[in-house]
Design a protein around this nucleic acid. Sequence first.
DNA 1: AAAACGACTTATGTCGACACTCAAGCTACA
DNA 2: TGTAGCTTGAGTGTCGACATAAGTCGTTTT
Lengths: 276, 276
Amino acid sequence: MLAAKPILLGSASPIGELPIDTPVKRQTAAPPRTKDQRSFARAREVARAIVAERHDRPSLVSNIACEVAAEIIEGQRSPGDDLNSVELSRRFRTSRTPIREALMLLEKEGLVQIPPRRRPRVALLAMEEVREIYQARAALFDLIATAVARNASTDDIGTLRAPLSEMERAFRDHDLNTFVWANVDFYDRNTQLANNRTVKRILDSLLLRTLRLRRLSLSQPDRMQASLDDNARLLKAYENRDATLAAALISSNHMNALAALEKCLHSQEAQLTSRT
Amino acid sequence: MLAAKPILLGSASPIGELPIDTPVKRQTAAPPRTKDQRSFARAREVARAIVAERHDRPSLVSNIACEVAAEIIEGQRSPGDDLNSVELSRRFRTSRTPIREALMLLEKEGLVQIPPRRRPRVALLAMEEVREIYQARAALFDLIATAVARNASTDDIGTLRAPLSEMERAFRDHDLNTFVWANVDFYDRNTQLANNRTVKRILDSLLLRTLRLRRLSLSQPDRMQASLDDNARLLKAYENRDATLAAALISSNHMNALAALEKCLHSQEAQLTSRT
DNA sequence: AAAACGACTTATGTCGACACTCAAGCTACA
DNA sequence: TGTAGCTTGAGTGTCGACATAAGTCGTTTT
């Protein structure tokens, strides 16, 4: 009764469209996606850049990891959902070994929790942890911004224009998804320019963890506008080589984003406690 | 012809003393350790706290991971050494599956590199990467110090005294090993007091990476003295609730440690390039 | 003699199997 | 009806096996 089509294409075909074979166990998993296929592909791509990193060759486990990561980021799997390896191995038509490795990869990125002898599940994200992540990000972006303002070439700084204008465009079109991904692009360029791969790796990992909440944060009233303004001013500060201002701007932007998140989440409090 | 004794005790017996069965392949691996068994045990303990983390139950893979981690940290395995899973599985009398998982754990901590389809090896550590790590650490410790100075209870701050006096004692005794581990203790307490587990995890991971070099850094003339002084002043700053000074001290201490390392390493340059 | 080729050895990635553990459902009992 | 113990089904951790790729070493070629 398996209806699933073969999975895991190498590069650019619509993966992940197959429903889970077994009758859905607990609750929502992979509802029939509609228009946001582009966003999903983008999520998978970002996940690949972060999760796979050195594994340039798209291997079996990195493919699985990216696919599942994208599902988590896109909210197709909610926090706490089971990710048992048997079900996944059926779905991806592999043995459980690669599945386990993929889940371990995602655990290291904080998207999945694997309690010993228990079923892996989509990581819960408590507000407290979100706060910690944003603090860490702010501190490290401070470093990044300072380095960019001081050391990046003017040409390199210019490459920040493209994602920024895409953010502008998306803002005008009220296109939240596009805005989010352009924003991710912007920060990605930023971290690249600082020329510190260690810090970039850490920031990427932290980004991945909170990506699920991005839409939430940016859908707060005026949040898109504020983020856009901050980033535009950041770019200006870079161009003026004003490291202090750049660091302050990026830090402030993070703190505002955090505040916006607190407002959303504190009310719904849907997030269970995280520390198991 | 296997002479190896059973491995992997649960808690406190001298593990890792067994020689590798097969004739040592490339170069040095596990020379017969002499007096530094205590240091080795300490290394394993630290590795457990960081690598295992949630896996409170000492599982098979976490035991293996800690053992190998300690060997790397203690310099019994040099950067670039092979860590092939067959040899390790013989040594630990398990199948290759747990070995692979353990190595993946260590890869996530930056101690091991696993290029696809190639043998895992002890991670190389280029000077550039060390610089990046120390910069990241400095930025995050800035955060930590500020938080401790502002929010930690006076009692909690008092718990920093113990490791500090141990550092003093070790310094007087010219006991480098003890000094290093007391120093690790000191920073560990520090990160605990800041009450930000996310940042603590990141810092722990970064610490683990550079732990191999600690002895090198601190054996530079006057480096122990300088570190001791800095940390004593840091404690005072905490007691005076002087967040700015605390952050500056901890940051400066890191930068000085980095400078000391640069001096050692730049000369020997034994570290091959890291990015593969 | 150095480089290129090829045969052989060794290790990796993946697989299916099995014992053990966990959790959910069921029965017994209050 | 509600709770404790037992049963059973499903999933995890580990194993040994196998196909394939990487490493090794001797031989040939220029």
